[in-house]
Structure formats: C-alpha cells, structure tokens
C-alpha cells in the first residue's frame, strides 16, 4: 500500500483535475447554448434550400439542366469534406468522425481526396496517410455564411473543373445534448431520395414535382442557386458540427468531473485507513514500550 504522503498528493492532484474539468464543462455549457441558437436559426432555411435543390433535380432531363446536376458516366475521383473540431477533450467526438470516414471510404473503388475542416480531423487523417488537399481551421464560433462559404465554393469548384466526380460531406448532426450522429451527405451531384442516403438536418421533406417554369430564365437562376445552396449545406453542417462538438465536450467533462469525485472518495477512504493503521501502530508501540518498562 502507498504511503500516506503519496496518497495525500494523489488526492490533491485528482481534486485539481476535477476543478479543471468542471471549469471546461461550464465554458462548454455556455458555448453550446450559443451554438444551438445559431444552428436552429438557420436550420429551416438550409432544409428548405436543400428541398428546392432536390425538386430541381427531380425535373425531367436533369442531366442537361445544369452541369452541377449531371451525373457523370464514370466516377474517377471522390472528394470528401470532413468536419471535425480544432480541439480535443471532447469525448469520442473527433475520433467518431474519423472512424466513420474510414469505414465509409477506405474501401472506396476510386481514389478519395479530403478537405479537412478542423485541426483534429486534419491531424488524424494525415496520420492515417489520407490525401488531404485543403484544410480549414480556427473557424470563428458561430461563423456567418460569409466566413465559411469558401469551403463550399472550393468543393463546387473541384467538382465543376472535373477534379472530383462526386462530393460527399461528413459531419456530426446535432440532435440534442445527449445525442449527436455522424452523418454523410452526398453534395454533388445531387442525390434523390430513394437513390441512396440523403440526410436532411433532422427534417423530412415532401412533394412530387412537375416541370418548373423559370424566371428570369433557367440558366441564370440555376447558376445562382445551385452553388450557393450547396455551399449553404456545408455552412449548416459546420454549425451542426460545432453544436455537437460543444455538447460532446460538455458531457465528456461532466463525466470526468463525476469520475474524479468518485476517485477522490475512494482515495480518501484508503488514506483514512492508512492513517488509522499508522495511529494504531503508534499506540501499540507506546503501550508495548510502557508494558516492557513496568514489567521490569
């Protein structure tokens, strides 16, 4: 058994750690509130925008409507936008994303390139030898669309210049404080319901469509909305991921604080026993000594 002194030190260090984790939990709690506000405010717009895009893609002859809608005959390159956090200490948040990416894309039939959003994801992917063509980190908390639209534009550019024939988005969907789901969404070319997985930021959409009339004309309007609404999906995914990250960190820190409390309790008990044992031994020594003297 460890000495009483060692145990005292151990108890002290565990207490210090629990103070740090409690502070981190408090910080994350306030950040998560802000992030949730941001994500719910824009969710309606992003969902509707995605729905409009999907209606456009359901139009007859979609392949000729717009180059960004056309499905390519041969797919030679896949591009994946992976959204993680800049910081660790968020439970399994970052590693869940990367594990998901590995499961989904490691056995992909064609070469896969990655755009990493978030430093943790970049590091983890580089360590696993994945090809990262661009990285974005140090995003502001609750960014505006303007702050991050370059990420979406880059993905759209890669697709339209032919460097990638399909584009996926991997992010963490925020459901509630205790539940975040790592999700993949096919960005380009747009995938229809029933064709594969199309996630929808927690909302279902409806409605079949007849052919549209376009005003001013088809090309102008599609040129405007398809890239913008696609970039908007990336924006929304970033907000979802940020809320998820803060929630995951808060829960992780709360667990750490609880564990520390438990550990301190157990250590304190053991320490008390050791101390008691020491006192008992001391008394026995004294009593033994006194008896030896009086017996003389």
């Amino acid at each position: 058994m460890a000495s009483a002194r060692e145990m005292r030190l151990r108890i002290k260090s565990v207490k210090n750690i629990s103070q740090v984790t409690r502070a981190l939990e408090t910080v994350s709690a306030s950040k998560v509130r802000k992030a949730i506000n941001a994500v719910t405010a824009t969710r309606a717009y992003a969902t509707k925008a995605w729905q409009v895009l999907r209606h456009v893609a359901e139009q007859p002859g979609r392949d000729s409507l717009h180059p960004l809608l056309a499905q390519r005959k041969s797919v030679n390159n896949t591009l994946v936008v992976v959204i993680t956090g800049d910081r660790g200490l968020a439970g399994a948040y970052n590693s869940n994303v990367i594990r998901f990416v590995s499961q989904r894309f490691d056995s992909n039939a064609v070469p896969v390139k990655y755009i990493a959003v978030g430093r943790k994801g970049r590091d983890l992917m580089l360590r696993r030898g994945k090809k990262v063509i661009a990285e974005f980190s140090n995003l502001p908390a609750a960014p505006t669309f303007g702050d991050v639209s370059t990420i979406g534009r880059l993905a759209v550019d890669e697709f339209s210049k032919g460097a990638a024939d399909e584009v996926y988005l991997v992010y963490t969907d925020f459901v509630n404080m205790g539940r975040q789901i790592t999700t993949v969404k096919k960005l380009l070319p747009l995938e229809l319901e029933g064709e594969g997985l199309v996630e929808d930021f927690g909302n279902k959409s409806t409605g079949p469509t007849a052919a549209y009339e376009y005003e001013p004309d088809m090309r102008v309007i599609l040129d405007e909305i398809i890239p913008r609404f696609t970039a908007l999906q990336v924006y929304q995914a970033i907000l979802e991921s940020q809320a998820s990250e803060h929630a995951a960190r808060m829960i992780a820190m709360r667990n750490a604080t609880d564990n520390a409390k438990e550990l301190v309790g157990a250590l304190q008990l053991a320490y008390n026993k050791v101390r008691q044992q020491g006192i008992t031994n001391d008394i026995l020594d004294i009593v033994g000594g006194a008896e030896a003297l009086s017996a003389k």
């Binding site: 209606h55 376009y214 001013p216 309007i221």
Partner: peptide, 17 residues
C-alpha cells in the same frame, strides 16, 4: 424577376428569383 406575380392555389410550379 419578371415582375409581380400573384400566386393562387394550384398554381403551376415556378422557380424564380
């Protein structure tokens, strides 16, 4: 984009800026 539009129920599908 092409001027004011009044939309009543059962309007044909339109996409406009």
């Amino acid at each position: 984009a092409a001027g004011e539009m009044g939309i009543l129920p059962k309007h044909a599908p339109v996409l406009t800026t």
